[in-house]
Design a protein around this nucleic acid. Sequence first.
DNA 1: ATTAAGGCATGAA
DNA 2: GTTCATGCCTTAA
Length: 99
Amino acid sequence: MELSEKVYRIVRQIPEGRVLTYGDVARMTGIRSPRVVGIFLHRNPDPAKTPCHRVVNHIGKVSSGYAFGGAEVQKKKLIDEGVPFVKDRVNLRVSLWIR
DNA sequence: ATTAAGGCATGAA
DNA sequence: GTTCATGCCTTAA
């Protein structure tokens, strides 16, 4: 199985209103580099099954390039799901999905 | 089967 | 808050 599928699996398991960082996803998938995760999410995103909009960088800000249409959409979706945005940033302490 | 290139987030000072 | 440097995986020929 390609690691990319693993990444998507994890992302799919992210509950609504919660987010993860690329680094966390990388660790869960066993990838040694978080950048690969970002590449996967940007390259082969499955809009219907892969909520890549729930993946943000370790600062809580949405990463560059959004497969669904734009970072604004991603931000809006997150807010819509109940993720509090504070000045274009998410409170990872609160919204970060833990296991 | 191998080589080559591309593209992205993290950590530390 | 900023800047610098790094490694890794996928796809294509």
